[in-house]
Write a protein that binds this DNA or RNA. Structure first.
Lengths: 347, 347
DNA sequence: TGTTAGCACTCACAAGTCCGGAGTGCCAGT
DNA sequence: ACTGGCACTCCGGACTTGTGAGTGCTAACA
């Protein structure tokens, strides 16, 4: 009993040491040594004891030293443990919360919400921020419009219930009959409006049957275009902001920030950073090598999903050096995700 | 006569020296000295002579030395002279031209053209690229659509002849009558379609008169929204790409690339960088302090306007350190502007 | 058994020193 | 007007040295 308790105590202190190391390192950006540690955190023991604990932590892979006779630095594994067990989420201050809601409330359309959100997130975390547009694949059709621009050119405008507007140009080989187009438009509207994207392919399966032979060509091309839009997950755009914050961390990245900047220019990469976040947890943190992108081994990603009641869902988050303020960033990402979800529901 | 000619020769050589300095400095990124100069460029004179010329150039403010007993570096003024009088535009290689046209030809809508263009420009110049969306203010209305989403919410979709689609949500205080809305839509369409944006305010002046009292409220809000869209020059979006190239120039910027990255995040700044380019000249170059943005004293901007036959016009360009390859960048910007103009006309 | 104090050792980093070389300006000679 | 020569400047890299923070280990202590 006593032994077990003592082991528990010991474990506790080791974790406290790890926490202290992470906190100090995040604050100072310098390897932290045993002496400095006991000075700044009132652990009631001597440096020598801390050294033992540090040696143990190093054996277990939670910390490492850049070179012999230097202080210790947390490893990815160390950060992981810190995030999972040690870091409390520090709630935002009430002025911060107020700022968030005021800032987002005054936005007018979806684009605006996205832009504002990314700015906001970048500003409060002082990191690079990512916000994904609400995914089309889980939303449904609110309205569809076909407009003739000339005799051979149409434009299709699709409005989703998440407030997103998609447009497609359609080029026809033969002149379009206005009346026929109106007819198609009306029936299409009836057929798909209110329907979720996932059901569109099925609905369109039988759609062209109701039209006479001579309209088939036109119907087909419209149908194809619509299917295109619905299928196009790729189009899930991600907006990016706060890249300037990367420059502050010049030294944080082994080589330079170039590979990171390059990675951030690829929509596909951004989607991968955001996309694979776990489905249920409120906030996902991916640390250093855990994240699947080449050239971003020294960065961590904090993401959360934001839901628009049932209809659509997407992610947002921040990207920064592994030595980031996890507690603060997690709180910020979580809070912003909540607010954005709410705003989009209201609209 | 003989004297005049000799003065001319002298001037010529000085200019040649300046050109050589600029070229060498751009290539090596190191201050260039008299000896290196005569070795690499076969000017038929001795280093000492060159030194005299350099002293003169320095007096006139075209070059400077970072410290005593170092080589010379071009000043902003030096680059200016170089660009104005010395730098030939070096034409793109034919594979490059082919790549441009292939790359842009396969784009499907306006957004796509913009994104592809910015990527392309960033890639061939290896600089940060900017592309402005075709300005609304010089385009005209191709179609306008009003769609009821619910009894109190409308969406207005406006399509311009430059292929751009603008949307606005409209929130009504009282329920909307479907028939009334259809009526407004029809008349509005007749009134404004084909009209240039600049004439819209005038047209709308008399518009609401034709409707009965009970519809005024609805008409007014629609009118206001439309005027909003038309007036909103601010909305002139600029897409940005190739920021990773900035990192390559780490040392080029006195402090860090942070202020530059920050500036590039502001749409307003981007517009200023692009917007004030001269109207007639093919390509505008703004060097260092010449450009109006705080924190970008060490960067140059090369821009060109690209026209969509009469209807709309906008700018594109690249941003890089003052010590950039002006000849190459000017050529690239010019070529891309031409192609983009052509593509957008076709569409 | 866990904690502490002391000690010898390591090693990055800053400061100091030195030296070569590239570059300059000036002057006298052609 | 151009050139060769010369004295001078001064940056930058290489090398050296000293210091201090940090470590691991061992022996003593509760």
């Amino acid at each position: 009993m006593a032994a077990a308790k003592e082991v528990g105590m010991l474990e506790d202190r080791r974790l406290a040491v790890l926490r202290a190391i992470v906190e100090d390192y995040v604050a100072t950006h310098e390897p932290v040594g045993s002496k400095a540690l006991v000075e700044r955190h009132h652990l009631g023991v001597s440096p020598a004891t801390i050294r033992n604990d540090m040696a143990a932590l190093e054996d277990e892979g939670y910390i490492a030293q850049p070179h012999t006779s230097a202080g210790r630095v947390p490893t990815d594994l160390g950060y992981r443990l810190f995030v999972d067990r040690l870091s409390g989420v520090k709630p935002l201050s009430s002025p911060e919360r107020r700022a968030i809601s005021e800032f987002l409330d005054s936005s007018v359309d979806l684009d605006d919400v996205m832009v504002r959100t990314v700015r906001l997130l970048a500003q409060i975390t002082r990191q690079v921020a990512l916000v994904q547009y609400p995914s089309l694949s889980r939303s449904s059709v609110r309205h569809i419009e076909l407009i003739a621009l000339s005799t051979t050119r149409l434009i299709m405008v699709l409005i989703t219930d998440s407030g997103r507007v998609e447009q497609r140009n359609i080029e026809c080989t033969s002149p379009v009959n206005e009346v026929a187009l109106g007819d198609i438009r009306a029936r299409l509207l009836v057929a798909v409006s209110g329907k979720p994207f996932s059901s569109i392919p099925e609905i369109l399966g039988a759609f062209s049957g109701q039209f006479p032979e001579e309209m088939q060509q036109l119907v087909t091309i419209i149908q194809t275009t619509l299917l295109d839009v619905v299928a196009e997950r790729i189009d899930d755009r991600v907006v990016l902001g706060g890249t300037a914050h990367l420059a502050r961390y010049g030294e944080a990245f082994p080589l330079s920030i170039q590979p990171v900047l390059e990675a951030l220019e690829e929509q596909v990469v951004l989607l991968r950073l955001l996309g694979e976040s776990s489905t249920n947890a409120a906030v996902t943190v991916r640390i250093g090598h855990e994240n699947p992108v080449e050239g971003m081994e020294a960065t961590s990603v904090v993401t959360a999903r934001y839901g628009i009641a049932q209809s659509a869902t997407a992610s947002l988050g921040v990207v920064g050096p592994t030595r980031m303020d996890y507690a603060g960033n997690i709180a910020a990402v979580q809070a912003v995700a909540q607010y954005v979800g709410r705003i989009l529901d209201d609209q």
